[in-house]
């Protein structure tokens, strides 16, 4: 009941009944201003003191967490890369080392083989020479014996054929003649 009465009293002062366009009805301005100041002030106070710091803190915490995680991931990545570089360097060093060793060993073995080959070649050459000399000597000796044997054989053959006697001198003369 009271509400109806107050409504009517407001209306009588320039509300809808008086023909004023409600949004422009100045009789409602003081009340609206009064409550706007109170409610907007309350809103501003609650926003600046309570709500916005809370939301800001959430976002700041998340940003810090993400940044921290990213930094840690970056550090781990750098560490991994350093380890990989270190490993590759060690591998390269070891490879170079192995190559050096292989080359050294190869040249040493080669020079050893060359030396042995040279001595062996020398020894063999000497042996061949000696053998050749021995063969030549033996051949000469054998040839001498052959001449003598041939002479005797020839004398024997002649005597058996002719029945006569042959002198050594004659045989030798004949051989020399045949050789001549």
């Amino acid at each position: 009941m009271a509400t109806t009465e107050t409504t009517e009293s407001t209306g009588a002062k320039g509300g809808h009944e008086s023909g004023a366009f409600p949004p422009l009805d100045s009789s409602s301005f003081p009340s609206q201003l009064f409550w706007l100041v109170i409610f907007f002030g309350a809103l501003y106070f609650l926003m600046s003191r309570l709500v916005l710091p809370k939301l800001g803190a959430i976002l700041a915490t998340r940003k810090a967490q993400i940044d921290g995680d990213m930094a840690r991931a970056q550090a781990l990545k750098d560490e991994t890369e350093a380890a990989v570089r270190h490993y590759e360097k060690a591998l390269g060093d070891a490879k170079a080392n192995a190559n050096d060793i292989a080359r050294d060993t190869k040249s040493k073995v080669t020079s050893e083989i060359d030396g042995e080959q040279a001595t062996l070649d020398g020894a063999l050459a000497k042996k061949i020479k000696d053998a050749e000399a021995r063969v030549a000597k033996a051949k000469a000796k054998a040839m001498e014996s052959v001449e003598a044997i041939a002479g005797e054989s020839a004398a024997d053959i002649v005597s058996s054929l002719t029945g006569g006697k042959t002198t050594k001198a004659a045989v030798a003369k004949a051989i020399a003649a045949s050789k001549g």
């Binding site: 107050t6 009293s9 407001t10 002062k13 009789s27 409602s28 003081p30 009340s31 609206q32 009064f34 409550w35 706007l36 409610f39 907007f40 309350a42 809103l43 609650l46």
Partner: peptide, 15 residues
């Protein structure tokens, strides 16, 4: 006259 009107009510609801 300062009154609590439907406008004020909805300002409060908004906040």
């Amino acid at each position: 006259q300062i009154s609590f009107t439907n406008s004020a009510l909805f300002m409060g609801i908004t906040v």
